[in-house]
């Protein structure tokens, strides 16, 4: 049983390290701003999730009891990563795109980030 947990924790740690590395390498490697948004928000979140799972398994195997409070960080990161990505995409649209370079917004007319009064339209 001890051997099993050691293998499990090792597998989680190696997987987490590789995912974290891939996420940050994608930030350097991908050449479009909106593609770059994908690598850190998905792969790095998965990497941290792997570390936290390893921490849980380690606490169960070597400590007095199973600790579940690592799940709090996992839940928090999984909840906040899409919100962060949405805000960063809005910043990109605000600074780098104009009304004409965006696809149409359907029946609303213009995207909310670009829907400014006429006087301060950039």
């Amino acid at each position: 049983m001890e051997q099993f947990f050691e293998l499990l924790i090792t597998a989680f740690l190696i997987m987490a390290g590789l995912f974290g590395l891939v996420g940050s390498f994608g930030l350097l490697k991908l050449n479009d701003a909106m593609s770059r948004l994908h690598a850190p928000t998905k792969a790095t979140t998965l990497g941290v999730g792997g570390v936290l799972l390893a921490s849980m398994a380690n606490a169960y195997a070597n400590g007095p009891y199973l600790s579940v409070h690592e799940l709090m960080i996992t839940l928090f990161l999984l909840l906040t990563a899409p919100i962060t990505a949405n805000f960063i995409a809005k910043v990109h649209i605000h600074q780098r795109e104009s009304r004409n370079s965006l696809p149409t917004a359907g029946e609303d007319g213009a995207w909310a980030t670009k829907n400014l009064p006429d006087t301060d339209e950039g």
Partner: peptide
Amino acid sequence: AIADRILALDTMFINAIALMVLYGIALGTG
């Protein structure tokens, strides 16, 4: 672009969390 800097800073925070939890595993404390 500023969007890239914000994104990189946010990723740095997430990686720092991972390093802290790893240090806890290596030392065996919570």
